[in-house]
Amino acid sequence: MKIAQEIVDYVSALSRLSLPEGEKAAMQRELEKILQYMDVLEGLDTAGVEPMSHVIPLENIMREDRVMPSQDRGELLAGAPVPDQEAFLTPKSVE
């Protein structure tokens, strides 16, 4: 599958990434390469193969509804890019 410049712009907009002009062409080539793997898969004969919905042959892995202590807030926020006592801070985002 060919990746047009518009698709690169669209995907980067969805991902909230601003790509410098110089990187767009490289990104275009990389995305194309990734999708070439799909072409390889498309070439396989899958008639009679059941669709797989998960790679791990496990089902019904669940836990009991029992409260465990949450993480200490100070510890949790320590990794945030902007320091604050009680919240994660982000650039203003109003829709």
Partner: peptide, 8 residues
Amino acid sequence: LDQTRADY
């Protein structure tokens, strides 16, 4: 401030 505070 030009900021959003997130409470999870």
